[in-house]
Design a protein around this nucleic acid. Structure first.
Length: 433
RNA sequence: GUCCCCGUCGUCCAGCGGUCCAGGAUACCGGGCUUUCAAUCCGGAAACGGGGGUUCGAAUCCCCCCGGGGACACCA
C-alpha cells in the first residue's frame, strides 16, 4: 500500500482556533502513526480575506502545538495549474462559462456516495446539488475545485477534515470523476462545539490556539485534551505525545460532536504541570514571571535556575496554569511584599517577639532544610509558650504575604534564610509602630 | 425550509447482543488528613431522548418520532 500522505489545509483568514488545531492534530497523528507525510497547505485562494499575518499565526500555532510539517504549499502559487485543469474540464465538456465565471456542470440525475471512513456511506442525490463555480470571474479558483486539484497533485491519500465539509465531498467526488482521477479516502471528524452547543467559532471567545499559551496552558495539555475530544483509548485520560502517536488511529475516532469543556482542560493542564521536567518548568516559570510583569528579567536571572525549579516544584502543586504559578511567585523573589489585608490581624503584639526570635535562630543556620525550619518553629513555640497553630500562620503571612500556600517548612526552605529573616524582621518591626 | 450527520451522567469518554440494577474522568456535594490552600484518600448525587420492532436476551441491530448540530456563496 502507498504510504500515507495527509494534509492540513487552513484558510488564512484569521487566527487558528482549537477546532482547526484539532483537525491539524488528527492529521499529524495519523501521519506520524503510519510513518506518512504531513503536509501543510495554505488555502489562500480568497485573496480579499487572506492575510500574511494569519499565515504567520497558523505557523506559530502549529509550532507551539509541536505539529511539525514535512511539506508546505500555498494555493496561490498554484493558480496556473488550477487554470490548466479548468481548461481541461472545459475541453471535456464538463465545465462552461457564464457571467465571466467558469462553472462545473453537476449531473441532473443520479446520486453520489461518499464512502466516509467514519460516517460510513453518505449518499447525496444530484438533484440536491447545484452547478458550482470553479473559477471566479477574475480567474482565481474556488475552494472545492482548488482542493481537488491540489489533493490529487499532492498525492493525498486520506482527507481528514471537519464534518462541516461532508456536504462538499459529493461535489468534489464529481470533479474527480470528471477528471478521471482516483479520489483519496475521506474521514470527516466530528465538530467541536462551544458551551452553547453550536460549532466552536471565533465568537465563542478564547478559541485561538495561541490564546491558550497566553493563559498559561501547556501545549502538552492542549494536545492531550484535543486528542481526547472525539478519540479515546479505553478509560485512559492522560496521554503523552509519544503515546498518542503510538495509539492514535482513525477507527478509534467518534462520530458525535463534542463540547469543549474548559474545566477539564484546566485539570489536565495541572496534571501536565505536575509531570513536567522541573528544569523545563523552571524555565517556563521564569519566562512567565517576566511576561506577567511579576518581576523583571534581572531579578529572575539573579534567582537562578535551581531556585526557580525549586519554586516551580511548590507552585505547580497548587496552580493549574503557568499564569497562576507566575502570579503567585512573588514570595520566592527578593524584595518587599504586599501583605493581604488580614495579615495585620495575624501579626499580633503577642506574636511579634516570636517572629523576631525565629529570625534570630534562622540567622545562624546555613541552607536550612524544611526539617530544620520545622524544629526552629517548634522550638520557638515551646520556649515562648505559644501554640504552633498560632505561630505558623503568622510566620507564613510575614514571609509570603498570604495565608495560603505550600507546606510552611517547604516554603521557608525554598525562599531561603536571607529573605525569610529579612521579612520576619520587617513584620516584627511593623508591629512596633 | 431542504439535504446530511449525530443522540450514554452537566461535560468528555468506555461499552461494539448476555459478564450493565451501565464503568472511568471532570465538575459538584459530604467526610478524613493538614497551620492554610492544594494534592491525596473515603463516601455521595448524576445518564442509556421517546415509541415500536428483531432476539431466549438490547445501551448495543432495524424503523418511526423527537432533540441537537452542520451544509445549502464567484467563503473555506
Amino acid at each position: 500500500m502507498d504510504s500515507v500522505r495527509v494534509r492540513f489545509a487552513p484558510s488564512p483568514t484569521g487566527y487558528l482556533h482549537v477546532g482547526g488545531g484539532r483537525t491539524a492534530l488528527f492529521n499529524w497523528l495519523y501521519a506520524r502513526h503510519h510513518g506518512g507525510t504531513f503536509i501543510l497547505r495554505i488555502e489562500d485562494t480568497d485573496r480579499t480575506r487572506s492575510t500574511d499575518e494569519a499565515i504567520e499565526q497558523i505557523f506559530a500555532s502549529l509550532r507551539w502545538l509541536g505539529l511539525d510539517w514535512d511539506e508546505v504549499y500555498r494555493q496561490t502559487d498554484r493558480f496556473d495549474r488550477h487554470r490548466e485543469v479548468a481548461a481541461e474540464l472545459v475541453r471535456r465538456g464538463a465545465a462552461y462559462e457564464s457571467e465571466g465565471a467558469l462553472w462545473f456542470r453537476v449531473p441532473k440525475e443520479g446520486a453520489t456516495t461518499v464512502p466516509d471512513l467514519l460516517a460510513g456511506d453518505v449518499t447525496v442525490q444530484h438533484s440536491e446539488l447545484k452547478d458550482l463555480v470553479i473559477l471566479r470571474s477574475d480567474g482565481t479558483p474556488i475552494y472545492n475545485f482548488a482542493c481537488v486539484v491540489d489533493d490529487h497533485d499532492m498525492g493525498i491519500t486520506h482527507v481528514i477534515r471537519g464534518a462541516e465539509h461532508l456536504n462538499n465531498t459529493p461535489k468534489q467526488l464529481l470533479l474527480y470523476q470528471a477528471l478521471g482521477w482516483e479520489p483519496p479516502l475521506f474521514a470527516h471528524v466530528p465538530l467541536i462545539l462551544g458551551p452553547d452547543r453550536s460549532k466552536l467559532s471565533k465568537r465563542h471567545g478564547a478559541g485561538s490556539v495561541l490564546d491558550y499559551d497566553e493563559r498559561g496552558i501547556l501545549p502538552e495539555a492542549l494536545v492531550n485534551f484535543l486528542a481526547r475530544l472525539g478519540w479515546s483509548h479505553g478509560d485512559q485520560e492522560v496521554f503523552s505525545r509519544e503515546e498518542l502517536v503510538a495509539l492514535f488511529d482513525l477507527p478509534g475516532v467518534n462520530t458525535s460532536a463534542a463540547v469543549f469543556d474548559d474545566e477539564k482542560l484546566m485539570w489536565l493542564n495541572h496534571e501536565w504541570l505536575r509531570r513536567l521536567d522541573l528544569d523545563r518548568l523552571g524555565r517556563l516559570l521564569g519566562e512567565r514571571i517576566v511576561r506577567r510583569g511579576v518581576a523583571d528579567q534581572a531579578t529572575v536571572d539573579a534567582l537562578g535556575p535551581t531556585k526557580l525549579a525549586r519554586a516551580a516544584a511548590l507552585l505547580r502543586e497548587r496552580g493549574r496554569t503557568l499564569v497562576e504559578m507566575a502570579d503567585r511567585a512573588r514570595p520566592y523573589l527578593p524584595g518587599d511584599l504586599d501583605l493581604v489585608p488580614e495579615a495585620e490581624a495575624l501579626l499580633t503584639a503577642e506574636l511579634r517577639p516570636a517572629l523576631a526570635e525565629v529570625a534570630r535562630r534562622v540567622e545562624g543556620l546555613s541552607q536550612p532544610s524544611a526539617a530544620e525550619f520545622e524544629s526552629v518553629l517548634q522550638g520557638v513555640a515551646r520556649d515562648l509558650g505559644i501554640s504552633i497553630k498560632a505561630l505558623a500562620p503568622a510566620v507564613r503571612v510575614a514571609v509570603s504575604g498570604t495565608r495560603v500556600g505550600p507546606g510552611l517548612y517547604d516554603l521557608l526552605s525554598v525562599i531561603g534564610p536571607e529573605i525569610v529573616v529579612s521579612r520576619l524582621r520587617g513584620a516584627a518591626r511593623k508591629e512596633e509602630r
